[in-house]
Design a protein around this nucleic acid. Sequence first.
DNA 1: TTGAAAGCGCTAACAT
DNA 2: ATGTTAGCGCTTTCAA
Lengths: 341, 341
Amino acid sequence: MAKPSGVVTMADVARSAGVSTMTVSNVINGRPRVGAATRERVLAAISDLGYQVNLAARHLRAGRTGVVGLAVPELERPYFAQLAGRLADRFEAHGLRIVMERTGASREGELDAVAFSRLRMYDGLILSVVDIDPAELGQLRTDAPVVMIGERALPSRFDHVMMDNVDGARQATAHLLATGARRIAMLGGDLVGSATMPALRAQGYALAHAEAGVPVDPELNVRTRFGLRDGYQAIRSLLEQGSEFDAVFALTDVVAMGALRALADAGLRVPGDVQVVGFDDIDEAAYLVPALSTVNPGHEELADLITALLTAQITGGPTGDPQEVVVPARLIQRGTTTPLD
Amino acid sequence: MAKPSGVVTMADVARSAGVSTMTVSNVINGRPRVGAATRERVLAAISDLGYQVNLAARHLRAGRTGVVGLAVPELERPYFAQLAGRLADRFEAHGLRIVMERTGASREGELDAVAFSRLRMYDGLILSVVDIDPAELGQLRTDAPVVMIGERALPSRFDHVMMDNVDGARQATAHLLATGARRIAMLGGDLVGSATMPALRAQGYALAHAEAGVPVDPELNVRTRFGLRDGYQAIRSLLEQGSEFDAVFALTDVVAMGALRALADAGLRVPGDVQVVGFDDIDEAAYLVPALSTVNPGHEELADLITALLTAQITGGPTGDPQEVVVPARLIQRGTTTPLD
DNA sequence: TTGAAAGCGCTAACAT
DNA sequence: ATGTTAGCGCTTTCAA
């Protein structure tokens, strides 16, 4: 029977089986030196009492949880949700579980909520950095396994896996230009910043223009957030202010989805009147009608690298110099752009 | 300076500030009886040393972590990702953080991975039950705050928040029938089971048919999983086997998206040739072209209820009889169905 | 207002 | 093969 409190401890099991807590611990953790008869008795007592290990206690003592944290800006962004699924598959193979939490895309969220304390509940952390300042990275615990993902950050002492934002955006824009587009609206870009996702993708956009000798019209960039509604509104405002454009480069597929809806509402045909390219190659992109042309940032490679780097840190401790890896991106042509022949 | 290990404990801070660990604890937890000067000194030492509380230790001793677990079948399913976002907003207002993990939709995952042990790391758990057996529910720790979500389960001693799967599906199907559809393909339904989501939604489908006096043709139900590709394949197989249908009830919006793509590939127009209704009202539904008619399961009410029930348990202990609440669903008519005039 | 002592449940290290 | 001792870092008494 359970104690009045309802919580059964290892000591209760030990008492009930007539052994020491150490023996119970050995049985639970599958350690070898336990007699068969004793093991049976302990197992019986465990199922009798409905005992479950207290992970907090184990963690406190053993210093590991078997849990890897994944901290992302928003839980509901398909890109991150799908990344989480891929990572969960991979880490499972290493006996580790992924748990996902959100930072709110704020410096505060990224530092305070995740790095400062929660880290202690994880064996390792995968942190999607959006708004953090490289200087503040120094505040993170030095010895905890961390892999950063996301935009290019200044050199830090953490492993860092990145997609090729600039080149991906360059490919997308170049394709649009090659098919004859000359006035390409950009949804969500940042033409002035430097190391954030919106800035990097805008750089690729500008680069493709430069390579093609086509001037960039800043009026065609709409600063916006990255929800469905944001993409919708961006097209609306472009239309309302009378801007002319023959193509759209949306900084994310989600924004592209919002844009496609707004274009349809305005009676503009895709790709006949306006071509559209997104970025991220989320699962939904291939299933839209017409299917969304987009940039695949290298999902599998990213997930493989993140897993390899973090498990190496977890099992091997600090692994020399921090790695900084960029995974190549590639354009996926689908129905929202005109094929080149 | 940190100890050689790199881990700064409360004792280090206490030593550095010339106080006891108890005073440090009091400062950190904002407890009243601490002198202003002492508080300053402690705070200075904390930021000096880069101290962070060890949540495992706190949890072990105090039994709380400030973390609420959300265990769902798949991290990447938009319905759950969007639910997570809503819950995170609400729990934040209570000073609690949501972390999300997956069960893999298996009994084993739901019981073993989540309920049995991980629960010990959370102040409370929101568990999406898919495959669990009510009998096994008895094995869960009695005293931990738990709210179950999802399908109708047999009475248990846990609070349980449900959407109205049967009535939602009934509304969707009834609308299709009212607009003249007579052969409604069902994607993902389970015509024989009883208390799972596929079975409940299939019951609503059958109920609407019965009410309209239209027979159900079991050949029009395609058993399938709930990914985009699954919806796509389901339509393909229906088409290949020559089944005729004038409407589609997809058990989830994601399946509906896959179906829409397959219909377009087959040259069938929506809603002209085939009407389509989904279920879940995920954010994407409103932005598809044409926009997806679907069933809104009451997102905000569900999130409000879950939050209220769980925070009540966390702050107030066991709250008498377990609640079982069903939130009404409502049909959202959009572009994939023919409007009734 | 502050501190000392005790112990949460578990496991590493060392007996036996 | 099993038990004993000690202590992970924190917070709850209770005392000063």
